[in-house]
């Protein structure tokens, strides 16, 4: 799997780094939940209070790296989880059959939704209890 393929075109950090999102006409809206969750791992950095310009380049590169790592990790976890849930481990054939294929599609979609849901819960600021 190519790491580059995992990266969103206009993710928060990349947008900061290259500001291509504005340039290409796509507005950079509020960060999606997954990105908020991604930001949570940046060691509690006060991302919201700081304007983009106050980040220096080193910080932005660091964030970009963390975001890439986060996405790769997310992809790997998703792949493993869905393989365990959907693919028969007796390996009667090397092709994925129709049932497995649709299971994989649904599994990925649901995993994504759960990621967003948990991201929203964690990002809402309310204490979890």
């Amino acid at each position: 799997m190519k790491v580059a393929n995992l990266l969103g075109p206009c993710s928060v950090v990349f947008a900061e780094l290259m500001s291509i999102c504005e340039a290409s006409g796509a507005q950079l809206s509020t960060p999606s939940a997954s990105e908020v969750a991604g930001l949570l791992i940046f060691g509690g950095m006060a991302a919201n209070n700081m304007s983009p310009s106050s980040f220096d380049k080193e910080q932005i590169f660091g964030m970009a790296e963390k975001e890439m790592e986060y996405r790769v990790e997310l992809f790997n976890k998703m792949t493993q989880t869905c393989f365990n849930k959907c693919v028969d481990n007796r390996y009667k054939e090397s092709e994925l059959n129709m049932g497995e294929n649709s299971c994989i599609d649904r599994c990925v979609s649901k995993y994504w939704h759960v990621t967003n849901l948990i991201g929203q819960l964690l990002g809402s600021g309310r204490p979890p209890i």
Binding site: M1, K2, N5, L6, L7, G8, P9, C10, S11, A26, S29, T30, S32, S34, R71, F75, M78, T79, C82, F83, C86, V87, N89, Y91, K92, E93, S94, E95, L96, E100, N101, I104, D105, V108, S109, W112
Partner: peptide, 28 residues
């Protein structure tokens, strides 16, 4: 078979993941 199947699976997940990633960036 296990290895081949896993790689095919990984490719499919990658495809769907990229779609979702794309969608998340363009929606709203």
């Amino acid at each position: 078979r296990c290895a081949e199947k896993f790689l095919k699976h990984s490719m499919r997940v990658g495809m769907r993941f990229a779609e979702l990633n794309q969608g998340a960036a363009t929606q709203d």
